[in-house]
């Protein structure tokens, strides 16, 4: 009887522990993703919520190589760290996934959509954002000739709000979007890129910061630092004659060897005679 009573007590204790555990799980705040931080501190600091807020649309507007895509991909990587899904509506078809993977994007969780017609781009983004299945939807309208109308901008913002997704719109300065928070990105030569909030209803308009290239492409930091130290921009078209310097970071990845040839097949192997003390052969 004693053993049985002990067993019953033990079971009751385990049950109570399990109940307590369930109560804690139910009471614990759910992991709630409210903003996506790109990890680029100067950029995140500019935004009202110290990050890109979910449920809203943000436009990144800039020149062809002004860091818009990298910023967007870093937001995608932030969502992937939370194991959420993202989508990239690739209007110009230029997204290079290997580089995205290097930035932390989980390619298995990134849906890439390449509609054939330009007019389908916005519709696609609206569907994706409204579904709520994707934490971040990037709409790349650059080099497509498309210009977002005000109504379309509102539609995108509304879809992002309904779906609780972040919609990132990538545009060029000649065809900016409308109806959403806009961040202008501009390459500033070797020093980095300048980001500036040029349109915002949540405040912070006019705030800007300089983002060093290293923040976007850390792997290039070593070479870049070396270049910056000794580099003087050449007055190429202005007729200047300052010496142009560069860093030689020659890397041979594979395949062809010296001068694009295969040693021993396309070109003769260098003689080992001198090294072996046999003298030069002619």
């Amino acid at each position: 009887m004693g053993a049985a009573a002990e067993r019953t007590e033990g079971t009751a204790e385990v049950l109570e522990q399990l109940r307590e555990r369930i109560r804690k799980l139910q009471a614990a705040p759910r992991a709630y993703l409210a903003t996506l931080r790109t990890g680029v501190a100067p950029f995140d600091a500019l935004l009202p919520g110290r990050g890109l807020p979910l449920g809203s649309a943000v436009e990144l507007c800039g020149e062809a190589a002004s860091g818009r895509t990298s910023l967007a991909l870093r937001a995608v990587a932030a969502a992937h760290r939370e194991r959420r899904l993202c989508a990239y509506v690739d209007g110009p078809g230029q997204l290079y996934p290997p580089a995205a993977a290097a930035m932390g994007v989980d390619l298995e969780r990134l849906l890439i959509v390449r509609p054939r017609e330009v007019k389908q781009l916005v519709w696609t983004a609206v569907q994706l954002a409204r579904s709520g299945a994707f934490a971040c939807v990037v709409l790349d309208l650059t080099q497509t000739g498309a210009r977002l109308a005000l109504a379309e901008g509102k539609k995108l913002a509304d879809a992002a709000f309904r779906g609780g997704s972040l919609l990132l719109l990538l545009t060029a300065p000649e065809a900016p979007g409308d109806g959403m928070l806009r961040v202008r990105t501009q390459a500033q030569g070797l020093s980095g890129l300048r980001v500036e909030v040029v349109r915002s209803r949540q405040g912070g308009m006019g705030a800007g910061a300089l983002v060093p290239w290293e923040a976007l492409y850390p792997a290039l930091a070593a070479a870049r630092g070396h270049v910056a130290a000794g580099m003087h921009p050449r007055e190429l078209l202005g007729g200047g004659d300052q010496g142009f310097q560069r860093v030689r970071t020659s890397v041979e990845r594979n395949g062809c060897g010296v001068m694009g040839g295969r040693p021993g097949r396309d070109r003769a192997l260098p003689s080992l005679g001198a090294a072996l003390g046999l003298g030069a052969r002619h």
């Binding site: 580099m231 860093v247 020659s250 062809c256």
Partner: peptide, 12 residues
Amino acid sequence: RASGLAGPERLG
């Protein structure tokens, strides 16, 4: 203008 350059990285 090319204000800086790094490389080459040979791929073949």
